[in-house]
Each structure stands twice: as C-alpha cells, then as structure tokens.
C-alpha cells in the first residue's frame, strides 16, 4: 500500500463514519457538523483522484455556503429529541426497502460498468483540470449548462416571490434619502443666555 492509498483510505473511512453519524446523532447541530465533515472527506478523496476543481468546489459551495445556511436554520430550531424518535418502528420497514433498492442499484451500476471501462490514462501534469472542465462546459455542453443556470434562476425568483410579503408597518428608511440629509435639516444651534 502506497502512502497515497493510505491517505485515501483514511479519508474514505472518515467520510463513511461521519455519514453514519449524520443519521445516528441525536442533536441536529451535531448531525449537520458530521455532514460537513463527510463533505470535507469526500472533497479530500476527490483531490487525491486529481479532480482538484471538483474537490475544492465541493468545499466552497456545500461546506462554505449551503451548510452554513443549514446550520443557521438548525441552530434556530427547538427540537424535542424524544418526539423525533417516536415513529422509528413504524418508518423502519419503508426505510429498509428504500435503502435496499438504492444499494441494489449502486451494486448493479458498479457491476455493469467495471469490466468494460479501463482506468483512464493518467493525464499529463501540465493539463489543468479547471481549464478542461471549463472548455467542456462552455463548448460541448453549453446549452445544457446555460439551461440549468436559467432553471436555477427561475427557482430563486419563485422562492423569493413565494415568501415575499409587503409589510407597510415596518419603519423602513430609504438609504438614498438618509444620505441626502444635510446638517441644517437636523440640527439647529440656539444661542441662549446662561441663567446665572
């Protein structure tokens, strides 16, 4: 076992263990942090596979932005742990079926792909991962990429319009008006005789 393989197995083990921790830990904040650790380990494993752009983007997007918002929401919740475990026996068979189906699909996929796909030839060191991904995305897959971006934009606009409420009772101040205020409009200096 080479050093790289050893490092890979360390990260892979941490990823699997933290993924298990996500669903077994009782405290939701701890579970979110375990998920962060799982993402991190997965990113490290990708780095070892020389997919540095994907690995770093995983950290940047999921760990740096998405999970921060997750944590934000979970921190605000007041979750009753006893009630969360109530329906365990009832939901267990359904969960088991879903898990079995997903596992079977994964195994089938791996089995169907493994023999005919030879390991890709090692790319020369000077070829940048980022450059190749960019070229593929913006030439070959330009339309799917742009359409995906547009769908995301529509989703953002829809989410904002769904939750937007105009509230006339807030004491909103227009910043432009605030900036335009002059001293004379606010302060008046008054000369007064001192009362001895």
């Amino acid at each position: 076992m080479t050093f790289t393989q050893f490092v890979f197995f360390v990260f892979a083990t941490v990823a699997v263990l933290s993924a298990v921790a996500v669903i077994t830990l009782r405290n939701p904040v701890h579970a979110v942090l375990a998920l962060v650790l799982a993402f991190f380990s997965a990113a490290a494993a990708w780095l070892l596979a020389e997919a540095e752009f994907l690995g770093i983007t995983l950290v940047l997007v999921y760990v740096g932005a998405v999970m921060v918002l997750f944590l934000f929401v979970v921190m605000m919740l007041d979750i009753n742990i006893a009630r969360m475990r109530e329906g365990f026996a009832r939901y267990f068979p359904v969960g088991l079926v879903v898990a079995l189906v997903m596992g079977a699909e994964l195994v089938l996929y791996v089995l169907s792909r493994a023999p005919e796909a030879p390991p890709p030839a090692p790319t020369p060191a000077e070829v940048s991962n980022t450059r190749m991904l960019g070229e593929a995305l913006y030439t070959q897959y330009l339309y799917p990429f742009e359409i995906a971006a547009l769908i995301l934009l529509v989703a953002i606009v829809a989410a904002i319009t769904l939750t937007l409420r105009r509230r006339p009772d807030t004491k909103y101040l227009n910043p432009a008006e605030q900036i335009r205020v002059r001293r004379e409009e606010r302060v008046r200096l008054v000369k007064m005789k001192s009362e001895s």
Binding site: E52, F53, I56, T57, T130
Partner: peptide
C-alpha cells in the same frame, strides 16, 4: 497548485 485561487476562496 493550479487551483490556488479557488483553494483560498474555499
């Protein structure tokens, strides 16, 4: 590394 800027941002 090639993705230095991304690494810093991440």
């Amino acid at each position: 590394i090639d993705a230095g800027l991304l690494y810093v941002l991440a």
